[in-house]
């Protein structure tokens, strides 16, 4: 049983090594059309010197809306569950 674990771990490690060697070099994506468009036109179109912020809040604003909604739902769920515990502890 222990041998099987060791062999599985070794196989997984070899898999990781092979895939890391087979990846394309860092900083050289296969398709650069989108990146070049953002870098060339991002500042003039959105007025933001930070290209990441211009993508997050302008080009891909819908994704940020989803993120904020997820956080809102998480806080609402925590409030819904723990509000009864807080007020219940106070009344007793």
């Amino acid at each position: 049983m222990k041998m099987a674990r060791v062999v599985t771990l070794a196989l997984f490690f070899v898999f990781l090594l092979i895939t890391s060697l087979a990846m394309r070099p860092f900083g050289k994506p296969s398709n650069t059309g989108m990146d070049d468009y953002f870098i060339q036109n991002g500042q003039a179109q959105t007025g933001s010197n930070n290209i990441v912020t211009s993508v997050v809040f302008d080009y891909r604003g819908m994704d940020t809306l989803g993120e904020a909604t997820v956080l809102f739902a998480a806080a609402s769920g925590v409030l819904l569950i723990f509000q009864r515990a807080v007020t219940g502890g106070k009344h007793e």
Binding site: N49, D58, G61
Partner: peptide, 8 residues
């Protein structure tokens, strides 16, 4: 600068 981005 940046329009609605600072407000957002």
């Amino acid at each position: 600068t940046a329009g609605v981005i600072p407000l957002m």
